[in-house]
Design a protein around this nucleic acid. Structure first.
Lengths: 198, 198
DNA sequence: TATAGTATATAGATCAGTCTATATATTCCG
DNA sequence: CGGAATATATAGACTGATCTATATACTATA
């Protein structure tokens, strides 16, 4: 198949970046993980490592954004949806034995400063995800400003939890925060009209 | 002075690690930043890069733990103390133009898996910081279990915010979450005894 | 036989780490 | 005090491995 090798390289790179970051992932790692020879990499990605990383990250961000949007749309109550999101993250961490985390955080912390396109990609990734969360809270009746603070709290705690859980190889922190945050969001929603009003 | 070079190497390494992580920081970077020759590094740190990174990280963790303990002890109301901590983090990020973050997170995300001592150091760092926060909440009357969830929320959101703020080069997210979290902690404290009881 | 894609050899820089040589304190002993 | 012996530290060349990247050869298939 035409772009089969290309696809394998992208998938292998995505995993390695989440595992070890930019500098921790060498082209040799990528080549041996994808089983492709050196020449193919520069055929499919003439821009070398940076182009590959940028394309991979763009893909990863899109995937997460799509998933996040679906999760938030699937539940009417955003507190329930957010709780479910934390649980999914906990499951993801456990499934890969705490070797994988967010695709963006490692790049923010270790990617070279001379690739502005990558920096912009990281910035816009967080903006997108926070925007999706905020929009869900607004739809449920939370005022704009409060919704943004809650979205930031959710996104930041998830990012931090992926680091903490990886360090401690334990998903419990994720679940504990999930309950706390879900309750907070619930309390920020306008009171449900129970039975009879007045 | 005897260990002046050694100190300069430790300080340079501490900054570089926070900036670019383990693989992003080369010995050449460390040597040129500290102005020391190659031989001195292996004289002071016979164990090479790993030993240096471990010593630096141990130092960094101690510094943060001491600072965190002082911040929490200085205020009777832990909600006020926590709010102040977020503000300090925001100031730190701004002071270094969003080039520095937590000393641990980059190591968790990119340090080699074959240095168990470093992994253990990262694990215990988070444990310490979360423990300090939890203890402060318990002292203020919050039940053990709830105190732990709140401590995890604070620590994880701070970790995440340092990443998000660095990516967006903006301290506003930190301040927004600060208000939200401080209010949550305040609401978790036992009601203050106002004027007359009974 | 063109072209797209695969495969490999290798260039040149940089990596962590080792080596010997030298400089500068400190200690020992008269 | 004072010179030899020793410990401490600096200095930088050098090694082999690994890094990204390029150059060139090969193999399908149209």
């Amino acid at each position: 198949m035409a772009n089969d090798t290309r696809t394998r390289m992208i998938e292998a790179t995505a995993l390695l970046l989440r595992q070890r970051g930019y500098h921790g992932t060498s082209l040799n790692d990528i080549l041996s993980a994808s089983g492709a020879p050196r020449g193919s990499l520069y055929f499919h990605f003439p821009g070398g490592k940076d182009q590959l990383v940028i394309e991979v990250t763009r893909d990863s961000v899109d995937k997460v954004s799509r998933w996040l949007g679906e999760e938030l749309a699937a539940e009417k109550d955003p507190a329930v949806a957010v709780h479910h999101i934390y649980q999914s993250v906990a499951r993801m961490l456990e499934d890969n034995q705490f070797t994988l985390g967010c695709p963006i955080a490692p790049l923010v912390l270790d990617s070279p400063a001379d690739v502005p396109e990558l920096a912009e990609l990281c910035r816009s990734a967080f903006e997108q995800w926070i925007g999706l969360l905020q929009a869900a809270f607004v739809r449920a009746g939370v005022p704009e400003r409060r919704a943004r603070a809650l979205a930031l709290l959710v996104e930041s705690s998830l990012e931090g939890l992926m680091v903490i859980a990886r360090a401690s190889r334990d998903r419990a922190p994720v679940l504990a925060v999930a309950d706390e945050v879900a309750a907070l969001i619930e309390s920020a929603l306008p009171a449900k009209e129970v039975a009879a009003v007045q």
